[in-house]
Design a protein around this nucleic acid. Structure first.
Lengths: 142, 142
DNA sequence: ACTTTATCAGATTATAAAGTCTGATTATCT
DNA sequence: AGATAATCAGACTTTATAATCTGATAAAGT
């Protein structure tokens, strides 16, 4: 296996990047997101619903309804989405699964994994998603 | 969620580190490994069985039977265990779940994740497990 | 006001991972 | 040779994640 994010989280990240790559304030129906990203319709709906609860996106009901970012892309970081869906626990636990792993009782890869985890956190938190528009377009046709 | 290794893999890594920290050629019954590492008996048995098939450890049946390393700890790397249990697929796939992620069509975190993945691979493959004896003893009482 | 088109909410199903059980087999000790 | 103590093998159960279905609700256009 060796996953890093859950499927839910991957899909959530993709969907938010998709919305950020479009015109600001443009409302995207779940149906469209489902088709463009090839994610089961009802599954992405549920994920978007939970991101709405977290305040990252907002929903608009009725005809011409859908989802849009709740704030400007320059205010959103990837880590916000990860935190909302998967949580941040894995950034604080031993990669080998040993209990109570700490600097004074380190596991065999404690220091190295610690450094990597910090880098991963930076990867997700140093830039806001408005910077990712171009690269998102590599992956999704809008 | 945000796992890196599956539970199976974590347990497998712990068990092999445990064996490597003991006297060379010492046979460890599954029962003992289960108790020391607090892993369900039948579950660790299955994992050890599969590591036996992979040729990383060997089993000895009958009274005073159990498992021991198939080769000297200086010939075993953590990546061998990861490969045997989880496989190496995740070292070759997009962390955001986009299909066909490549240098010419990179996803928003392609370069950074690539670098991290390389570091993670190095963490698991640069040293052999005979170097980990001391740190393993931090985590497991023998 | 009515129809359409969308989300919303919660129950349900499917699949995969984690963990358990049981009976057979095998080796060692007495 | 027989008893014992272990693995071995495979079926089974449980739990968590992924995905689906259905009916209610709500907003916008006519």
């Amino acid at each position: 296996m060796t996953v890093f994010f859950s499927k839910k989280c991957e899909y959530g990240l993709q969907a938010v990047l998709f919305m950020a790559a479009r015109e600001y304030d443009c409302v995207c129906p779940a149906e469209e997101i489902s088709k463009k990203l090839i994610i089961p319709r009802e599954f992405i709906s549920k994920i978007l619903q939970s991101l709405t609860e977290s305040g990252i996106i907002e929903s608009k009901k009725g005809k011409a309804g859908g989802f849009k970012l709740a704030k400007h892309p320059s205010k959103i970081k990837l880590i916000d989405i990860v935190e909302a869906i998967d949580g941040l626990d894995s950034f604080n636990s031993c990669v080998l699964g040993f209990p109570h792993c700490s600097p004074d009782k380190p596991c065999p890869v404690h220091d190295q994994w610690g450094a990597l985890r910090t880098k991963a956190y930076e990867m997700l938190s140093s830039e806001t998603i408005d910077k990712f528009k171009e690269k998102t377009l590599n992956k999704i046709k809008i």
